[in-house]
Amino acid sequence: MKSLTRQKRFEEVKRMSDGLDRVFIIGCGTCATMAKTGGVEEVGAMKARLQEAGKLVTGAVVIPTACDEMTAVLLEENKKAVEDARCIIVMACALGVQQVNLYLSKPVLPALDTLFIGMEKSPGYFFEACDQCGQCILGETAGICPLTACHKGLLNGPCGGTDKGKCEVDPEKDCAFTLIYERLREQGRLDLMRRYHPPRNHQVLPRPREVRIS
């Protein structure tokens, strides 16, 4: 499981940090390094571009996992450079950004766009496997999630847009219900596809979603 990210255009990073001339950059050694969006190399490149754009970079680090509490320790270790900066530019997914935001009061700015939580199916190929809907129906869909694998998140079968087993929105993508159908047929469980799924509960946990574990 990885948080998939994409770099924002540099102009957007510049616009966000307009008027904040001293920056500290944080990359992430886990997902963003894997996605090649916030590892050592990308942080180095960002540093150079920001300097070119006239910013003073007070420091740049790649922390092991930006979204955990070790981030606090790393910020402490780089206290001086962090304090000198007027903003922090985070090259991690939005969880990393928000983790840093927990510890600092100065502006924390995302340099990446967070796309989805993905599963690696084959080397380098990630797909969105779960929308965290709170009411898992994988047991009835042969382990394929229609909420993420179907463009429309349908439950009761393919829409009229399905064509030669592919999806209406992209002829490169499989229609979720072709996949579900084929697997259920192999398992001899096509009766599951005939079952009526009532409308989903979109408020299993009303937003903001929270859980307390004691």
């Binding site: 009761n156 079968g157 009229g160 030669k164 159908y181 047929r185 096509l190 005939r194």
Partner: peptide, 19 residues
């Protein structure tokens, strides 16, 4: 409702038709 008699594969379409 609607149905696509020429859908491919056809069986998922027919299952939905019945639903």
């Amino acid at each position: 409702a609607t149905v696509t008699p020429e859908a491919e594969p056809l069986e998922p379409q027919l299952i939905k038709f019945e639903k």
